[in-house]
Every structure is written in C-alpha cells, then in structure tokens.
Design a binder for these strands. Sequence first.
DNA 1: AGGCAATGTTACCGAATTGTTACCAGATTT
DNA 2: AAATCTGGTAACAATTCGGTAACATTGCCT
Lengths: 212, 212
Amino acid sequence: MRGLTDAFTARGCVVVSAADGQAGLDAALSAQPDLILLDIMLPKIDGYEICKAVRSRGVEVPIIMLTARGQEADIVRGLNSGADDYVTKPFSIGELIARVNAFLRRRNSGREKVCRFGDFVLDVAAHKLFRNGAEMELTAKEFRLLAHLASRPGRALTRDDILDAVWGSSVFVTPRSIDRCVTTLRAKIELVPRSPRYIQTIRDIGYRFEPD
Amino acid sequence: MRGLTDAFTARGCVVVSAADGQAGLDAALSAQPDLILLDIMLPKIDGYEICKAVRSRGVEVPIIMLTARGQEADIVRGLNSGADDYVTKPFSIGELIARVNAFLRRRNSGREKVCRFGDFVLDVAAHKLFRNGAEMELTAKEFRLLAHLASRPGRALTRDDILDAVWGSSVFVTPRSIDRCVTTLRAKIELVPRSPRYIQTIRDIGYRFEPD
DNA sequence: AGGCAATGTTACCGAATTGTTACCAGATTT
DNA sequence: AAATCTGGTAACAATTCGGTAACATTGCCT
C-alpha cells in the first residue's frame, strides 16, 4: 500500500512496511514500532495469526486491523485476537490517521518515557537522571534499580522481584547486594538517607518507591 | 438505551447511564468509570463537547463514541476531541462488546486489588493499610495475617489453616504465636479489642474475619 | 600490567519483630 | 462448685532483618 506509506511519512512518521505476513511479523518484533497497521488479507499467514503471534510474544503495541470484510464475526475475531481497533475498507486516509493519532496520543500521555518525582526527572530512554535540571551521576546498577522501582510506583516489590528485574534471573548474587545498591542510591537521591522519602523499605518484604 | 445497559450488566459490568449530556458529564466525573460509551446526538450538549470537557479535566479513561453519522469528517472530529474509538450505527452489540473488551483488556494489566472493611482499606499490592485515609503501621506478620483473614471474609479459619498460609508449612511455631499476633493486630485495628468486631475468635476452631 | 570505578561479599551492629512462657479470666464440663 | 480447658495478654528472650563499613573481586581503560 504505497498510498498509506506516503500519507504517514508525509506526516513525519517513520514507516516500516512488509510485503507478506511472515515479513511483517519479523518486522513487528524487530523494529519495535509504536503502532502496527495490519491488513487481514495477506499472503502466507493471515492477519489474525500475525496478531496472535505478536501478542504472544508479549508485545503490547497498539494494532489496528485493515480489512475489506465488514462482517461482524470478522471484527469480533480481529479484536479478540488482540487487535485494538479495526477499520474496514473502503476507509479514508483521514479517518485512519485520526484513529492512529488517538492511539499515539494515548500512549504519549499515559506511558511517558520520563518519570518525574520530587525535583527529579528520570529519563529512561536517555539513561539519565536530573535533579532540578542538573544531571546526576548514577552507576548502571543504581540506574536500573531506580528505573525499576520508579516504574512501579507505590507498589511493594519483593527482593526476588527486584533481583530478577535488575540483576537478571540467571545471575546469582547475595540478596544483600540489593541493600548495598539501595544504600548508595539513597545516598545520592534522598535528602535524609536514614529516613528515606522515595525508596522505602518494607521489612521482610522488600522496597517500595513512593513518588512525591 | 436500555438494550446496551442490559447487555453490559449481563456481562457483569456495572453500568451508570445518563439521559442527557450534562448528566453524563457529571456522571463521568463523579463515578470514575473504567470506560465511557458516548452517544454523539444528545440533548443539551453534544458528544464532542462532552468529550473535550471530560478530557480537559484530565480524565484519561477510554471513550468510545456511538453515532448514526458515518461521515469521515465526523469520525475525525470525534477522535480529535479526545475519543479513542468510534462506532457507527447500526452496530451489533457483539462488535461493541468486543471493542470494549479490547480497551478493558489493555487497562486490566495494571489492576490493583484493594480490600475494604469498616473504614479501612487494605492495599495488598502496595502493602499498606489505611484507616480513613491515614496509613497505619503493621508488621509483616500482622499484615500477612490480616490479608489472609480478609481474603476469606465470613469464613471460619482453623489455626492450622492460618499457620500454613501465614507462617508457611515448613516452619515450626507454637500455635500460641497466632494468638499473640492476633492480639497485636486487634490492638491496632479493633476499636474495642476485648470485643472484636472484625477478627472474631471461634473457640476450639480458630478465627473468622467479619467485614462491616 | 597497572589503575580505577563499579559491584559483590562478608561481618558487625542496632533495632524491631517474633516466639515462648507464664499467668489470668471466662467458659465448659463433670 | 471444682476441675479443666481455651484463649488473651504481658514480659521476656531469641531471632531476624536491614544499614553500612570494610574488604574482595571484576572488568574496563590507558
């Protein structure tokens, strides 16, 4: 669909297109797009299967299906295989763009890549932490730990959970390594490390990140 | 639209419906729904305005618009005023439900379970207990005990059962440890620990948690 | 190879939690 | 009514847990 590609590139999007189902699936998994437009009628693998395959890999990116068929059963089937929206041909480019925007807007407002707390800004993508606009030095472990805590604000995280996410499930380290990392991290971000405001310890459980 | 209300209540949803735009706007802001179905053609205020009004209050709940009009311009306008999806009449209930599910599925990933009783809120995910909004300090054992009791309200739990769930099947402790923990827990949450309202003892058996 | 920073490990300390024991009161039984 | 049983609870003891300093190790850079 050259027309679609042109329309979106003209709007400043970066478009990756694929000729058939298998190629599209590979592209979806490797290119990590912000949104997927998926035609149902495809050579080799049909759109429903692609959709399921993508979702089964844990990819949660919005998927909008495009199809000539307008039967209710198809729509239901499409949405149930993991699509988020469904547009039937013929559709106008304008409508499609509006729907795409609706998803992108949502994503941008909801899951921002930066995380704010107190007078800190944590930019995960850039791997940087700022306090009042000034960049702070964090070690790799400290950063990952902070990012993981901050990504689940207000939730109690067990030591195992943290170990898994920050150190990786395969490595073996003493659970005390967490404490040590927490100590150094607190020394950098907490005003009073002895009575932490952000990284709270839950005795016998683990830690909890408390924004603001 | 009685048909819609019935269809969703039948599927276990709690439905709040409103007769006109103003009422709907009020309801949307006060009821804090998980999703809004919004008819465009409404008396008093039209759907686009409602949509903008809801969004301008910072409410980010998914909004699906329902309309008889299928013109591209209307669709674009709807999505641009903050709607996430747009369904044109006539539509089938099945399709609508599928679309609703697509949004709710997306939402449900970060669902938190809290447990309310009296003027307490027990937030297991955050590992916190609140009384009238004020956080209370509980020790790990107390918290686990309370969470276990509260997760089986109104049921008689044997000492063995509690020992297993809270202390773990592998550890060996005197059954009296339960009593001690119950005592300290009651001291914190019961108004009159001597005649407990929530944690009742069943002689010769164990305890029972009585919500409200 | 040497130096340096980051990270993991161990040990010790203090504090808080938790288990145990003992004693008491009320209920139940004989 | 006395004996007995069960649970509440206070007091004490033991244990556990997390903070942190000191030391060891790893890996990288020159």
